[in-house]
């Protein structure tokens, strides 16, 4: 993404004359402008990260029977919590589950979003404004409410979908089964975010100068060729942006499975890594393990999204500049 790109030259130029004359405004003014943000950023971003690392290095030791105020002591544990997290079968299977989810759901959603954006940008589709509004609508519905809504649509007896499918002859399909429930969650996430991703890609498409298409059409390119040869390569940066945010969202999956737990027992309290961390911290009262799990997850997310970014950036650059 933007992380490695140099700042646009010349934007930040304060004329030389002033820089030499007035030293205090050189540091003073920008610091004054940035200090409210930097202060809050330090307290609510950097400090929690530091504190999570600190907590993850401690553990609570119980002495005697564990009764009474002085029966527990907190001591330094080194990397013991990390060892426990990485050896925890629930954590590992949770990570595996969200990875499986991501490998299937993210490409489906992005292909769908790209297709819709290309169609909206093409000449073959009418009622563009209407479709754009409709596709974007689910993003205006908070994730928890979307999950509650879909939980009703999955529930036999309540759901018109289940009864219609039964009427058409599909039998009674169980959306909340032990294997199907993961994909039912994938459907909720796809429903929520396809339109948002479509809009990002569509914004990229709209920024392409029309003259590029004209040149291609004079050369006799079909609309599909234009889409694959010109449009998609030119919105690669938007696609990367959507992919990175989708990867982050997938690994952090929490609200949708948490909400669906009220309608099915097939989602365990360790279904996703975040659910496990939540359970450890608030149900089992083990904040140290939870902190270590949160750190592992955050580092993993960062490596994966950053790595993806670097990988694609290099390839995209070499392709576009040919």
């Amino acid at each position: 993404m933007v992380l490695s790109s140099a700042p646009p030259k010349g934007q930040a130029d304060v004329p030389q004359r002033r820089r030499i004359k007035d030293k205090s405004s050189k540091m003073g003014a920008p610091l004054a402008f940035m200090s409210p943000f930097l202060l809050l950023f330090a307290i609510f971003f950097l400090l929690p990260i530091g504190y999570a690392i600190y907590e993850s290095l401690l553990q609570i030791k119980v002495s005697g029977l564990g009764i009474g105020p002085n029966s527990t002591t907190t001591q330094f544990a080194g990397l013991a919590n990390y060892a426990k997290v990485l050896a925890n079968a629930s954590f590992i299977s949770g990570v595996g589950r969200v990875l499986e989810f991501g490998i299937v759901q993210v490409p489906i959603m992005l292909i769908l979003a790209t297709t819709l954006a290309l169609l909206l940008d093409s000449a073959s589709v009418y009622l563009k404004r209407f479709f754009r509004l409709v596709f974007f609508l689910p993003y205006g519905i908070p994730g928890v409410i979307a999950a509650i809504l879909w939980s009703f649509l999955y529930l036999p007896g309540l759901s018109p979908i289940v009864s219609i499918l039964k009427g058409v002859g599909f039998g009674s399909i169980n959306f909340l089964g032990i294997h199907s429930v993961l994909w039912s969650i994938a459907n909720i996430v796809t429903w929520e975010y396809t339109g948002y991703n479509m809009l990002i890609i569509y914004a990229g498409l709209q920024a392409i100068p029309q003259s590029l298409y004209e040149a291609a059409r004079i050369d006799g390119a079909s609309e599909i060729q234009v889409a694959f040869r010109i449009k998609i390569p030119l919105v690669v940066s938007s696609l990367v942006l959507t992919a990175v945010f989708s990867i982050i969202g997938t690994l952090q999956l929490f609200s949708e499975p948490q909400v669906l737990r009220s309608v099915t027992t097939n989602i365990s309290s360790s279904f996703t890594p975040n659910l496990l961390a939540y359970t450890k911290a608030f149900v089992e009262n083990n904040p140290n393990f939870a902190a270590a799990a949160a750190v592992v997850l955050a580092v993993g997310t960062f490596i994966l999204s950053f790595g993806f970014l670097k990988l694609v950036q290099r390839r995209a650059l070499s392709e576009v500049e040919v």
């Binding site: 907590e55 982050i248 952090q252 902190a291 949160a294």
Partner: peptide, 8 residues
């Protein structure tokens, strides 16, 4: 991600 910060 916001969820990673909420717990700490």
């Amino acid at each position: 991600p916001g969820t990673a910060l909420a717990l700490p």
